[in-house]
């Protein structure tokens, strides 16, 4: 162990969570949380995508491979998709992906799929809190044990 990592292990572990948010609902919901100054844990890093339908399963797998401790994917509520049906497609895709990942031994708590509308700033903050809790409950991501 290098000195730096030793130092790290002594501090409180702050999970890093990558969040894929669809541009039209969830990203807007996250903005509303901001405008309403609703506080939530600073562990997420947002990647904006046009639609949850855009999210390739590889994005999730690569995120875990590259050491992100948890994933949050949030799109529009069923029926609200800006692109008509993108979120339905995404929903089916992630249902399968989640099963596969669980099968591979990845804790389901790392994979958080949900939806948040543009009016749900409050809900967005809640979901982030819940996600951080979920990820904290399973500890750091050591799946691939890759050095950085």
């Amino acid at each position: 162990m290098t000195d730096k990592s030793k130092e790290k292990s002594t501090e409180e572990w702050k999970p890093k969570i990558i969040a894929f948010l669809c541009n039209w609902c969830s990203y807007a919901g996250a903005d509303l949380a901001g405008v309403s100054r609703i506080q939530y844990p600073p562990n997420i890093r947002v990647v904006r995508v046009p639609c949850t339908g855009r999210i390739n399963p590889f994005f999730i797998i690569k995120s875990l491979a590259y050491g992100w401790d948890g994933i949050l994917v949030s799109g529009c509520h069923p029926g609200d998709c800006h692109y008509i049906s993108g979120n339905y497609i995404a929903r089916r895709r992630f249902a399968i992906l989640r099963d596969l990942m669980t099968f591979l031994g990845i804790e389901p708590e790392r994979l958080n799929f949900t939806w948040v509308s543009a009016a749900e700033g409050e809900r967005f903050a809640k979901i982030v809190r819940k996600t951080v809790e979920n990820v904290k409950s399973v500890g750091p991501n050591k799946i691939f044990n890759k050095k950085w």
Partner: peptide
């Protein structure tokens, strides 16, 4: 986005 999704919420 370091305001709506960062400074304002932390």
């Amino acid at each position: 986005n370091i305001r709506d999704q960062c400074s304002w919420v932390h």
